[in-house]
Simulated scan of single mutants.
Amino acid sequence: MEAKKNPQTEIGRNSSIYFAIGLNIMLFLSWQALEYRTYEKSDVEIDILNVEAEEEEEEIPILNINMPPPPPPPPAVIQQNIQIVEDVVDIEETVIESTETNQDDAIEERVVSVSDVYVEDYEEDVEVAFAVIESVPVFPGCEGKSRAETKECFQNKIQKHVMDNFEYPKTALEMGIQGRVSVVFVIDTKGHTINVRSRGPDRLLEEEAERIINLLPQMKPGMQRGRPVKVSYAVPIYFKFRPS
């Protein structure tokens, strides 16, 4: 014979509900314990302070100062400039005529002859390189030669001129400055040397190279198409010393 259990007497029937209620109660108590604050108590003496406001009345004396009244303003002076103008003024009207033409206007025929045409001579400032000039400049002492001989003589004279007038700058020599200086200059239509420009390793060497070129004598100018023109020429000058 089996024993039957009464469902009302079962102990674990509502255990989950009791567990949830107990868990909530413990969480509430824990939160209250964390939020609980304590304060330091100190002896504070509370008393009533009666302050009576004392109003001090200061008497301000009244002074009667007799000041003279301000002087009256000067009387206004009114100047009346009366100009008599005639009622009727003659105005000269300017008539602007139209400059437009129409088909009724005749056009004056004018015949221009060749003698009426004036051609102004314009001297063109042309600068030609030494390599392509028709007639190279003639250095003093190179006269009466062919074009090739005159060109070669010119180059030889330039080299001789550089060697004869060459002076190594003392400051550059002490500082050990050396190198190549390229000098470009122009021989104008009068045979003078102008526009001397140089480029080198140092300004001391450039100034010496320009000084040498500026000492060139006057030459016979170069010719292009039978007219004197400016001729540009470039020459390298080497500055080199041997250490002792």
Rank of each mutant, 00 (worst) to 15 (best):
P137T: 11
N66Y: 14
I25M: 04
I213P: 00
V184A: 10
G176R: 04
P217G: 04
L215Y: 01
K230G: 04
N14M: 09
G191W: 01
S135A: 11
V184E: 06
V88Q: 10
A3L: 11
V44P: 05
D43R: 13
N165W: 10
N165S: 13
N64I: 15
E54R: 11
A33H: 06
G176I: 08
P71I: 03
E2I: 13
V117P: 02
E120L: 14
V114Y: 12
N66W: 06
E55N: 09
R199V: 02
D125N: 15
E149P: 03
S98A: 09
V138I: 14
Q224T: 02
D116P: 09
K4Q: 08
V111Q: 14
I133W: 00
S16Q: 06
F241K: 05
D47F: 12
E109D: 07
N14G: 07
N214F: 01
I21H: 04
N66H: 08
L27A: 11
E124G: 03
G226S: 04
R13Y: 11
S232A: 07
V132Q: 04
S98P: 06
I133N: 00
E57D: 12
P61E: 07
D202W: 01
A148D: 14
E56C: 01
Q218A: 10
S42V: 07
T99P: 13
N50M: 15
V162I: 15
M67Q: 07
R225M: 13
N14W: 05
S182R: 14
Q8F: 09
E208Q: 11
V77M: 03
K157G: 01
L205R: 00
P61I: 07
P72F: 12
P61M: 03
A129Y: 14
P243I: 01
A3I: 08
E149Y: 04
R197K: 08
E149A: 15
M1S: 10
E109M: 05
M219T: 02
D202Y: 02
Q83W: 03
E54T: 10
E86A: 11
V111D: 10
V181Q: 01
A20M: 05
P228N: 03
E59K: 10
D47C: 11
N81S: 05
E92V: 05
T99N: 14
K230Y: 07
D202H: 10
E143I: 15
K4S: 09
I82P: 01
G22A: 07
L29C: 05
S244P: 14
C153N: 11
D105Y: 07
I25E: 02
N50G: 10
P70L: 08
Y18H: 15
E124N: 09
G176M: 09
T171I: 08
E120H: 14
L29T: 04
V183D: 09
G141I: 04
L34H: 01
P72M: 10
K190E: 10
L173P: 00
F239K: 01
I212M: 09
V231N: 13
E35P: 00
Y36G: 00
D47Q: 15
C153L: 11
E120P: 06
G179N: 05
A3K: 15
E152K: 13
S198N: 02
P169K: 04
N195T: 04
F139W: 15
G141C: 08
E206I: 03
T99H: 05
I133T: 03
Y36H: 06
K160W: 04
I177H: 12
V231S: 05
T150V: 02
E92D: 10
Y233D: 00
